[in-house]
Design a protein around this nucleic acid. Structure first.
Lengths: 158, 158
DNA sequence: CCAGATTGTTGGTGTAACCAACGATACACA
DNA sequence: TGTGTATCGTTGGTTACACCAACAATCTGG
């Protein structure tokens, strides 16, 4: 393939389809691509359950910390208050959560995990565990723990 | 705050606002949260340049591999063909790219990086480098390289 | 020559992440 | 006691990213 006057010599198409070195070396790009893969896998695992990632995060929080206000729920999961509203609505409707006004504070609702919600959480956990194994299949157990630890440090630094 | 009959004892609100252990131990969640932080930082760095992450990825590819078709561009950056169209449009309009039909293949366009585009790429790179340092400020250089290497292995495994 | 693949393009989807604003309520403190 | 500040739930938005389906035009393998 001779190089014509316009200088075109095949570009990216010459070989397979490598990722530009600039991107491969850019932590934010690598992290984001990994997140895309991770979300694809988890969304796939949750598909058919009628539950999304937001829901799982909130179920986890309620299971661990007990009944909480919507604002606290949002803070500990990193979900915006306004998005918590919709998520709680959906899960109340399915009988996984109960929402009641806080008698001690007229501004708050108290959101509680129902037994059905707890059961649902456990079944989701199993599905997600499989997805994690698939996601990290190229890493050893030690490496998997390392990656979580390093990323956790990154998160804690802000 | 006495525990009333409904069993409410403060939930998440009791202490600061910890993240549920279930989420902290879930690689896909940690990776996603890190990506949210990473994207926030990079979007902040790119704010005011009129350029988005998609654009930077394509500029990087063209700089490294030379003139390429839109399809190849999409494949090596992980961007959908249809999204490449819009991104190329925007950057042609700003004079950073040139789009011309491939004389050797009537289906293809050849997208070329202009000198102005190259300059733009370099200035973006500097901005993004700062964002990386900010993102990974809690990690040592070795740890930063480790995290990129491990995540790269994850990406290459699919 | 024909079947099948590929390309650019249009037009669409969903949704995660976010922001502003509101009325209602709580709280600090003068 | 009142008054300003802050917080709560909620509504109603916005944005961009990641997708998908379909199309006509074009190329390629057999």
């Amino acid at each position: 393939m001779a190089t014509p006057t316009n200088g075109y010599s095949g570009g990216v198409g010459n070989t397979a389809n490598p990722t530009p070195a600039r991107l491969r070396a850019l932590p934010s790009w690598v992290i984001n691509q990994a997140a895309i893969a991770a979300n694809r896998l988890t969304d796939g695992a949750l598909a058919g359950t009628g539950t999304r990632r937001y829901h799982f995060a909130m179920l986890s929080a309620l299971d661990e910390f007990g009944p909480s206000s919507q604002a606290d729920l949002g803070r500990c999961t990193g979900i915006d208050r306004s998005d918590v509203v919709a998520a709680v609505n959906a899960m109340v409707e399915r009988g996984f959560l109960q929402r009641s006004p806080d008698p001690a504070d007229g501004r708050r609702n108290i959101v509680t995990l129902t037994p059905a919600g707890k059961d649902h959480l456990e079944s989701l956990s199993a599905l997600l565990d499989d997805a994690q194994n698939e996601l990290l299949r190229a890493l050893s157990p030690v490496e998997s723990r390392t990656i979580v630890e390093l990323l956790t440090r990154v998160l804690d630094s802000r």
